[in-house]
Structure formats: C-alpha cells, structure tokens
Design a protein around this nucleic acid. Structure first.
Lengths: 336, 336
DNA sequence: GTGAAAGCGCTAACAC
DNA sequence: GTGTTAGCGCTTTCAC
C-alpha cells in the first residue's frame, strides 16, 4: 500500500516538555488558562509545542477532569425549518463558547436508554433538548446525575434543569391584537394533535386575549403536523369563510400549509377574505406565495441564552432551576 | 444548597469486577463484542454491571484505543432544507452504526485552524464534509493524519479521501429530456455565483444533452443564493418569455425562488408559459404554490453510503479513494 | 513557579 | 478463557 503522505505520529506533552526543557506539568499548565505559570516558561512551551505541532489530547484531559466539553443536542423534526435554524444557531454558539456539540436527531422509535447511555458514557458537559416529545427518562437521569440540562421550548419542571422559552404569552396576545385591529371578529386557531407546550401556551394566550374583548375562538384540531396539518385545516376554515375570519396558527409550518392550500387550491384571496397569522418567522414565511404575518422568535437569542444557562449550571450544578424568557416581535406582512 | 436527588458516584469496571468476582479484564471483555470470554462469565459481569448501573467510560476507552467513535460532520448553509435533511439522515445513520456525530456548522468567517484542532484533539474516528465551500486545510490535514474523511457532493481529489456524489450526469440529462419532451426548444439554466461542484456538473450534463440535439442553452448568472437567487433570475427569464422556454435550476431552493416570484409577482402561468425543473426534491417542492418537477436525491441513501465508506476506511486507512455515485430519480409534478 | 509522583478508567499483551 | 501487568496522555496534589 502506497503512503504518498507520511502519517504523522502523535506528539505528546512529554515530547514538548523535553524540547522546551521543562516538565510535563509545565506543559499542562501552559495549556490551562488561569494556572500559575511564569510568562517565560509559557512562551518556551508554546514555541516548542508549535514546532512539534502539539495538540492537547482531549480524551486524556477528559479522563482526568471527569468531564468533556461535549454538549449533547437532542432534536426532533429537523424537517421543520425553525428547528434546523435553531440547531444551526446553537451549534455555532456552543463552539464559539468552547463546547463541542454532539447531535442526536430523534424520532418516534428512538431508544431513550441507548441515547442516555451515549450521553453519560461520553461524560458530556451538558445537554440541550429541543424536541416536542419529551424524552422523560433522559431528563430525569440528567437531573439525577447532575448533568447540566437545558430545555428549549419546554415546560417540564425538574430540579436542576433550566428552561428557555419564547414569550408565548406576549406572542399569543399580539397575534390576537393584530387580527382584531384588522377588523376580524370571528376566530379560528389551528391545533395539531401533537402540539407541544409552546403551541398550547400561545393558543391559550391568544384565546384569553380575545375573550377579554368578549370574542370567542374556535379550535380546529388536525391530525397531521406542519404543512400537512395546515392543509388539513382548510376544510374547516372554508366553512367559516363567509364570516369575518381571523386565523391563528401557532407555527409557521402549519400556517404555510393553510395559506398555500387556501390560495392555490381554493382561490381564496388573503387578506381580503380572511386574515392569517403564524408563529416563528421561518424563512419561507417571507416568500411571495405566503407573505405571512407572523411572530418572530430569534433563534440566535435562544442559542445565546441557552449556552449562558449551561455555563452557569456547570459552575453551580445544584442551583435552583432558571427560567429564561426570550422576547418575540411582530413581523407584519400581507396575510393580515 | 439542597440536594433533593442524590448524586450517584460513578461506578468503574473495578467495582463491577469485584461484585462479579472476576478481573477487570473480564469486565472489559464482556463489553467488547468479539472478545474471547465464556458465556458464563459474560452473564455474571452483565448482571453485576446492571445492578451497579455501570457504563463503560468512553473517554478511558478512547484514550486507550487512540480513537473515539466520534465523527465530525461539517456543514454549511443549514438554511437550505436539503442540507438539514442530509444532516438529519446522516446523524441518524451514524448513531445507528455506533458512531457519535459532532456537528460543526460553518460559514464564511469560520476558523479552519480551530475546527481542525477540535477534530484532531478529539481524535475523531472520521469526518464528513457536506459544504459547498471547501475547507481545504481541513481536507488536507485529515488526509495527512489518516483521519477517515468522506466528502459529500464534492469532487476534490485527495489521497485517502472518499467521495459520495449524486448521479449528476444522469440528473442533468434527465432534466434536459423532460424539458424537451414537454416541447421546449429554448433553454435557460440559472447559475449561482457560489455554485459548487455538483451544480456545475448538473449544468454541464444538461447543456451537453441538449447540444446533442442541436439545442442551445443560455446561462443566467445570479449573485444571490437559494431563494433570492431564483428571484433574481426572474428579470432575465421574463425577457425570454415569448419563446418556447424551459428553465433548469440545479437546486430546488433556487427554483422555488424563481417559480414563486414568477407566479405570484408577475402572474406568469406555469407550465403554460414556460417549463421549470429543479433539483433535490426538498419538501417545499411539493407545496401547492410550487408543484415543482424535480430530480430527487435520496438523503437516506447518501447517508447510508457515507457511513459505509467511513467504516471501510477505518478498516483500511490507506486504501485508495473510493467514489460512490448515488442514483437519482425524476419526480414529475406540474411545473413542466 | 516548578517538578515528581500518583492516578483518571480502560484495554491489550502476556502468561497461565 | 482468565488474571496480571503495563500503559494510553493528561492533570493535579504535594513538596520544594
């Protein structure tokens, strides 16, 4: 077998120590921020290290510290653009902050026990869960083992577990207000069978705000998720069309299914015949076919806060759970 | 600080060995598939392990084996639904095959050197790159260090580096043929500034197939990517509208920007006034507003093949590069 | 501020 | 098939 390129043998702290004329401890300290080492030796070590192409072996370090910088990200439904934006942002922030994201995409038939094993076997520094279906066992076990855990868009009340949520109360209310100020008086909210905590909270806030004005909301339940769920809601929406209708979908993917089907299969004119508002502001919401008014949640802000909470919890594993709320804003487009 | 839940101290192979009345090697063997151990002791060990809640410490194992089961996935443009589908599929396959995916989302201002450091520091078992912009340094260094590397949708010719590509030749030809059999005689292909290898290959195949029939293709260059790129192409497309036009976008995201803008901003009727075909078959291509005919690449098949190549290369790091082609199929919808 | 020594938890080579 | 022994490469008391 030809070896066109020579394989480089791995260089250890011992080699660096020898070349720099110091001990291995010195090398270790040179690569450990905040350890007591003179600037002079640090320089010497760094020079030797560069010369040899030394990199500290994280496995050895982890074995010692009983902790890696690995962070498990558990995600479901990556087909939802909001989810993949979230993961994208989270992965970037984690790396920037010195963590190393491991990605686990789960679905219905995932093996909770196996996943937990992996997480624990690798002694992850933390876990972030952004999925609708709660992997209960994982949450409990993380809490129990004091593995820092951050729950995004989830409300589960667990000891030692932090949560990050959008301001669903504000978002739901804003949706109601936008629809009202567009002159709508009759309301439908589309609810997927598998609705999560966030969706439910948004709907509750929406309904509540309307009832303050003495207005009623009808809930249309659909079996499918995302786009298909929206398409499914069309039947019910069409029935109410002669009234002064405002529709709220607590997720853009659903709203997009609805608006697309309404416009392109049933020639409904929006916003002339009805107003529609979504939630999340995924990229597709701004596409011409949709031109969807929606409530924007900043994935970047979510990611920032999540990493921040993780950091804090690593410092204080036994602190009581924190609950962060991320602001939401209205994005006005043509569907209202 | 209250400790509502007791923290469990970590249990080592030593503890299990003691309880099972065997040596630590026996414990190790019980957890190493294919090692020589009697069924009887294996049982004993497993029972003891379960009782104590033992999990093998991957860091220690890795330190020993000089290799983790970590696989780095390097991805760009997660906003492209095709990309996130790819990552989703890849992550699932990797886990199923015993690997642990680390995710690195890169953009223009990423630090190649830092990323490389991470990969090497963690002694990853392999790296998969699915990004348009080639992180050259990373590729070279992986080859050099014999870190198994798989390139998805890339053509870079590197020693010890495997590649997985869709059948761009077939795909490009099919696109041409579909358009021709719809009676089109005048062709435009939309090309983004940042087009990657795959896109270029598809365009080449498309153009070539048409020229076999004596038909010419005009390339429209756009500066923006994805949806915006498609929207940008509209101006040029409209100019050619009175002719018998067929348009090919080597990526669905671009095609969607084009078709959406054409239909919803310029009232162009498709396929009456022109035929349009895309590439990838992302979920949005099937939405009503688009109803886009496209060339489907199976992300699942991509993932399967990629993991397979990784496995092989781990066994034979010095084998010569393999080149796998994944089949593509036509998905007929209403845009042609 | 620095080095020596003792592990972190595991696997592999070697005897038996 | 099984136990013993010797590390994997690093960090970390503990003296100095």
């Amino acid at each position: 077998m030809a070896h066109d390129i020579p394989k480089i043998p791995s260089v250890t702290s011992f080699d660096v120590a020898k070349l720099a004329g110091v001990s291995r401890s010195a090398v270790s300290r040179a690569f450990t921020p905040g350890s007591s080492i003179s600037e002079k030796t640090r320089k010497k070590v760094l020079i030797a290290a560069t010369e040899l192409g030394y990199r500290v072996n994280q496995m050895a370090r982890a074995l010692n510290k009983q902790r890696t910088d690995l962070v498990g990200m558990i995600a479901s439904r990556m087909s939802n653009p909001y989810r993949s934006e979230q993961i994208d942002a989270l992965a970037k922030h984690l790396v920037r902050e010195g963590f190393r994201p491991m990605l686990f995409c789960i679905d219905e038939d995932m093996d909770e026990e196996q996943l937990l094993s992996i997480l624990l076997n690798y002694q992850v520094s933390g876990v972030v869960i952004t999925s609708d279906a709660p992997p209960v066992e994982i949450c409990n076990e993380c809490a129990r083992m004091r593995v820092p855990l951050a729950l995004v868009d989830r409300i589960d009340d667990l000891p030692f577990v932090d949560r990050i949520n959008g301001d669903n109360l504000k978002g739901g209310r804003m949706a109601a207000e936008v629809l009202m100020s567009a002159g709508r008086r009759d309301f439908i909210v589309v609810q997927q069978e598998t609705i999560g905590y966030s969706g439910a909270a948004r709907i509750a806030a929406f309904t509540e705000r309307l009832s303050q004005e003495g207005l009623k909301t009808r809930v249309v339940n659909v079996d499918a998720n995302e786009y298909e769920g929206g398409a499914e809601a069309v039947t019910e929406v069409l029935k109410s069309l002669d009234q002064n209708l405002g529709v709220f979908c607590p997720s853009d993917t659903v709203a997009l299914g609805l608006i697309d089907t309404l416009r392109n299969k049933h020639n409904v004119r929006i916003p002339q015949q009805l107003s529609l508002i979504g939630y999340d502001d995924i990229p597709q919401a701004s596409w011409s076919f949709a031109d969807l008014t929606t409530i924007k949640q900043s994935v970047d802000e979510f990611a920032r806060v999540t990493v921040e909470l993780l950091r804090e919890r690593i410092r204080h594993p036994d602190a009581k759970p924190k609950n962060k709320i991320v602001d939401v804003t209205l994005v006005r487009r043509g569907s209202v």
